[in-house]
Write a protein that binds this DNA or RNA. Structure first.
Lengths: 224, 224
DNA sequence: TATACCATACTTCCATACCAGTAAAGTCTT
DNA sequence: AAGACTTTACTGGTATGGAAGTATGGTATA
């Protein structure tokens, strides 16, 4: 048995450049508003400008960069409007997913496991790992609802939120987040759809209070 | 007062090529699975391959095309999984939006107007206009909820569904769709959040019955 | 001092040439 | 005739050069 994802995947250089930059942007290594230069990056990694340019185009499609013709390419600032929109969508979708999970006998072991990971990451102050585990927790819920594809579709929206979270994580205590996660899981285990929905909405509304504070602390990283 | 959107908008050739192909794909002029050739299109519109190539990259990011390195570029087939995922997301989000609209004194004139447009388009058999009006109807609801940005974020997902609808519209009678739209509007006007949510969910679940029939009629246009 | 102008040094955008991988037609061998 | 191998004609991927537009800083002028 051959893994089709391997034979069908001659990853191009442009794709690798894109992935590299994508990760750096999400982690906050490349701050919002920073300037990107085709030539600089090309020289830096020993390539021609072309693959770098194509990576920029992909980033722009991701909503992470902005190419201004004949002017320059910049890391997109975090749009408060976009974050709020993404949050609303997640709340709506994950509420429904939670109801679906609560209504069936789903395997919740994966979600349970992530709670432990988050405890340890929080204790270590490992921001990146905490965020990754947080994502896996929510992804596991989508999987338990039999809707893995839905989680994939939200990727683009999650990107914007994750950039914000890399900033907020350094400011806020995450034990509260873990508690909210546990509340969700408990409701799901009890098969209580109403409680699960409430827990999900409460959890995702947390960002409504955090966003203004983060934005106030880094005004140059945001647009309205 | 100068319109900033005008001075800041030197539309590149690649962008125009992208928009052109994007529209043709959504309208079904370019059928799923069709082959795209950089050289063919470049010759056809009198350009070099480069801008066409960059348009392909954008289309791939849109999820409308697939670039297979060293093999060829193809119009993406319609993924049944993706359509179902998009449908679920829309049902979740628009349910919440409907509740928001029902709970406030919103201006619903725009939605009302689209119902008339749909009546006339349906009578004429104008598929494209009907779909456009359908989109505007749902978009007006998002606007009435004060969440225009949310509707923008769903654009990518709507693309996949719209391709499907261009096929289904020729098969199904749309008067039922109009009736469902009216049910939504009536509930909103009455300020009945529960009825509005139910009407929205009923309306968007229509696709669950249509998708299998469309897919069966055009098996070569779909992947699982 | 303030302002208009202009030369210059960038930037991205597009055209062209070349490279590498794929697939299918054609040829040879058995 | 059937199979394996070779050739050839494509495909997209990358490199490079120059064109077009923009920002910047200096300079002349009022």
């Amino acid at each position: 048995m051959i893994d089709a994802t391997l034979i069908a995947r001659p990853v191009t250089t442009a794709q690798q450049v894109h992935d590299w930059l994508h990760q750096r942007i999400l982690r906050g290594d490349l701050p919002p508003g920073a300037r990107l230069s085709e030539t600089d990056i090309a020289d830096q990694i020993g390539l021609s400008r072309q693959p770098v340019r194509e990576a920029f185009i992909r980033l722009a499609s991701d909503g992470l960069a902005e190419v201004r013709p004949q002017r320059g390419t910049y890391i997109g600032k975090i749009s408060a409007r976009a974050v709020l929109s993404a949050r609303l969508i997640r709340e709506a979708v994950e509420s429904d997913l939670a109801r679906m999970v609560a209504g069936r006998q789903a395997d919740l072991a994966a979600m349970e496991a992530e709670l432990g990971v988050q405890d340890r990451a929080n204790a270590r102050g490992d921001v990146a790992e905490f965020i990754a585990s947080d994502d896996r927790f929510h992804g596991a819920m989508a999987l338990a609802a039999g809707q893995a594809a839905v989680w994939q579709d939200l990727e683009r929206l999650k990107s914007q939120m994750n950039r914000l979270r890399h900033m907020s994580m350094r400011v806020f205590d995450r034990s509260e987040t873990i508690g909210q996660h546990r509340a969700i899981l408990t409701a799901l285990q009890a098969g209580d759809a109403d409680a699960a929905e409430t827990a999900v909405r409460t959890h995702l509304r947390q960002m409504l209070t955090e966003l203004p504070q983060i934005a106030a602390a880094h005004p140059d990283y945001f647009t309205d």
